[in-house]
Design a protein around this nucleic acid. Sequence first.
DNA 1: ATCGTTGATCGCAAATCAACGATGGCGCAC
DNA 2: GTGCGCCATCGTTGATTTGCGATCAACGAT
Lengths: 114, 114
Amino acid sequence: MTVTVSTTAVAADQHDQEFALLAKALGHPARVRILRLLLARDACYCGEIVDELPLAQATVSQHLKVLREAALIVGKIEGLHTCYWADRDRLGELHQLIGGLLAEAVDVNTDGCT
Amino acid sequence: MTVTVSTTAVAADQHDQEFALLAKALGHPARVRILRLLLARDACYCGEIVDELPLAQATVSQHLKVLREAALIVGKIEGLHTCYWADRDRLGELHQLIGGLLAEAVDVNTDGCT
DNA sequence: ATCGTTGATCGCAAATCAACGATGGCGCAC
DNA sequence: GTGCGCCATCGTTGATTTGCGATCAACGAT
């Protein structure tokens, strides 16, 4: 087991990695749109998502894959259709990560340059 | 002035655009690291950031540019040095955007597929 | 005026991403 | 079995990103 003494540089790096991974997955409007759609609808079929977006089926599938790899959404084959839904907790993780950043040293914001 | 009636599709698109823009800027570990560094230190010179990262000066400068373009950080030339600091409010915007997403329809999370 | 320092920018190479048509697997209907 | 609809994946194209050395502009010091 690794020592969990403090915010080691290594641990922080992994933090950054995780943060970046999540942020990157949401770094494209189409993917934000898809996630919003899934959050609003609780769950829906891939076809509905394709219908909703001005993109080819292959492209949407690609975006879904990126979101899946970031674990922001889950897909389950259901006979003919594939059902997708958002993992709210996973998005919550990103929310918390940012919250953690914002909490770091909240004090004077005036320019301490000079 | 535009009508602010409801969450128009167009407005939502702009929302997604903004969301993606911010997320994309944070979609690289080095940039997360830089932002963390600036948040922790309130403000610091470019050189210090370069020293802190295992990257060449040109690369760091490039990352700083991306963060600047996303308005997540601010840079001010100060004689020889350039002083950078984080815009906490801007990061807060992303935080809120995610919060807004999470708020959308918080109910049954069981699979409504079948 | 000529350095040395700082940091932004240019230009290049490698890697990755975005979008799409085409293909293929899989399940259902016949 | 054959055919069809759904969707993941492959392969290709063009655009963007990443990382870096080299260069350049601005500035302070000599």
